[in-house]
Design a protein around this nucleic acid. Structure first.
Lengths: 168, 168
DNA sequence: TCCTGGCGCGTATAGTTATGCGCTCCAGTG
DNA sequence: CACTGGAGCGCATAACTATACGCGCCAGGA
């Protein structure tokens, strides 16, 4: 598929965009158009807008509260799972995730940080990790949730889950 | 400080906003205004815009590529560092991060996942982790980068390199 | 009490981003 | 070759967001 030698102008532009967004605090598409032009790539704001959508790039607040373009969260759980979770199974109140050797810890802490509903704790070895389900939940449910995270694309939050809410 | 009993209308509104953004995929401020109204809170789009800035809320791509408001990244490196990195020091080609007992692994994998420039690898114990700098980089440089991540926010800060002038 | 400064917010509008429409450039077919 | 369908993109503009400005409210000092 995407060979590096493949230099369609479209791909080149998008690659450059990703790079610009990662490296600088860019606040507007007009700015991106200018930066692209500076790199010898012509494009209009409309094209950039469409590219940003395809690349999954959004706007987040910088240190000063200003909006700046940002790549899709690289530390997100979905990303980690997609990269490292070879297999996700369940037994009793446990979900079991297999990973490449040495990657279990990374997956475990990503799960911990994601603070998923129904997850009580994680323990990991080298290439395997156990996810302990809360009482009232099953390992299967947790495994399913993890699989969803893995296959559903992005990092987002939009759930019914009326229980256990810190606010309000 | 922010007592729960403190029912300033402003604070109430912002709390509600945070909640709405966390729970639903909201695409526009007009929508937020409507949702607020539905919860009995009157506000205009301008006010919402200002609130979002204060709350650090940005727009990220949802599953379908559409933009939706999103809370500041909870799993991000900055967040992890702020929460767990007690001290960041350096010696030779190493940066040394102290954490609360047991948290070193989480910080290490967050750093791994962030894929920082100049970072070759990480090794961690229970409450300490070593970050090995690339050749050509120093432990001090890495430590500085980590401190910046900790104190600044997600995106980077820099100057447009190619003489592009983002005029307005 | 009157004055003064700061904060919060609405209004109006400038600034920014998304998108309907139509054109051009292929690749695949007959 | 001519024909057809689809992808990619620019133009113009609608949709959306940020902000300059001004007003009203409130606390502190004279």
């Amino acid at each position: 598929m995407s060979t590096v030698a493949d230099a369609s102008p479209r791909e080149r532009r998008q690659r450059l965009l990703t790079d610009l967004v990662a490296r600088y605090e860019v606040a507007s598409q007009a700015e991106l158009v200018a930066l692209l032009a500076g790199a010898g790539v012509e494009a209009t704001q409309a094209t950039v807008s469409r590219d940003l959508e395809e690349l999954g790039i959004g706007k987040q607040r910088g240190a000063d509260g200003r909006l700046a373009y940002a790549l899709p969260e690289p530390g997100g759980l979905a990303q980690v799972l997609r990269q490292f979770a070879i297999d996700i199974a369940a037994s009793g109140n446990l979900a079991v995730v297999r990973t490449p050797p040495g990657a279990a810890a990374a997956v475990a802490s990503a799960i911990d940080l994601a603070d998923l509903d129904g997850v009580l704790a994680t323990v990991q070895g080298d290439d395997t990790l156990l996810v302990v389900a809360d009482e009232g939940t099953s390992g299967h449910a947790v495994a399913t949730a993890l699989r969803e995270r893995k296959h559903a694309n992005p990092a987002r939050a939009a759930e019914p889950a009326p229980g256990g809410d810190p606010t309000t």
